[in-house]
């Protein structure tokens, strides 16, 4: 057990060292990502400003607390760029070209390999933007911050990352059957976009969809509520439940899908 954990950590270190070495060669990306985050951030703030120019509240959230929601959105966006996006494109390529064979033959969990093989540093600007927004929103709206609510919010963040990851891996897994899903990235992004705003800003029907079908509510709104000390224990526990269920589903679905992997014939 200890040995396999140490193998996993050593593998991760080498995975990330090698993929960073490849990534740093493309310095244009740093420029693009910085500009894209700045542009995107000002755009989002502008849209938010337009919402608030009509009234004081957006679905019961004031300006500063919805900044916290936006902040969590940028944290997830950063996570997507750093880990999800570079690996997703590779999964599809592995299946297309049949090099998944090599990964399946390694004595290491194939889902672990496929999800953690690549890492890209270009999500850091988004992460920074997210942290700044959260800090600013919190500072302006709540003056005291208890350790327990920070810890709770961290737990919610982890469970929202797990939800996002599992959804993403479920989509990636379908490429075993449908080899051509290069726009899966777009899907993930656009689902996330809905998380820029508090879930209560949506009409009831849409809210229901974003809670029960595509769990966008749990991605940004619940962590933000928790940090602001507004969340209920029932929502928090359901977030953890959903994260667990989705994660286990993604594992089971991957195992199931592998039975249909015919290994791109030579």
């Amino acid at each position: 057990m200890i040995k396999s954990i140490s193998i996993i950590f050593r593998t991760l270190r080498i995975f990330w060292a090698t993929s960073l070495a490849g990534e740093v060669e493309y310095r244009l990306n740093l420029f693009v990502e910085c500009f894209s985050v700045i542009g995107n951030l000002s755009g989002s703030l502008f849209v938010l400003y337009m919402f608030y120019s009509n009234g004081k509240y957006l679905g019961g959230w004031n300006w500063n607390s919805s900044l916290v929601v936006l902040g969590f959105y940028y944290l997830l966006e950063g996570f997507t760029i750093i880990l999800l996006q570079p690996n997703l494109t590779r999964i599809v390529r592995h299946i297309q070209q049949g090099s998944l064979d090599f990964i399946l033959l390694k004595p290491i969990d194939s889902q672990f390999w496929l999800s953690s093989r690549m890492i890209s540093p270009w999500g850091i600007p988004s992460l920074l933007a997210g942290l700044i927004l959260i800090a600013r929103g919190i500072y302006m709206s709540v003056h005291t911050m208890s350790i327990s609510s920070i810890l709770a919010a961290l737990t919610m963040l982890i469970s929202s990352l797990a939800i996002l990851y599992s959804l993403w891996f479920l989509i990636a897994t379908t490429s075993i059957w449908f080899v051509k899903i290069w726009n899966a990235n777009e899907v993930l992004r656009s689902v996330l976009v809905a998380g820029r705003y508090p879930i209560s800003a949506y009409p009831e029907v849409v809210r229901a969809i974003f809670t029960f079908i595509l769990p966008v509510a749990f991605l940004t709104t619940i962590p933000a509520e928790t940090l602001l000390g507004k969340s209920y224990i029932s929502w928090m526990s359901s977030s953890i439940m959903i994260a667990l269920i989705l994660f286990l589903t993604s594992r089971a679905f991957w195992k199931y899908a592998l039975r249909f992997y015919t290994s791109a014939s030579s």
């Binding site: 040995k3 193998i7 593998t11 270190r13 080498i14 090698t18 070495a21 004595p107």
Partner: peptide, 12 residues
């Protein structure tokens, strides 16, 4: 050599 390092880690 990088692939070799990856494989070495994976095979412990």
């Amino acid at each position: 050599i990088d692939t070799l390092k990856v494989n070495a880690a994976v095979y412990g």
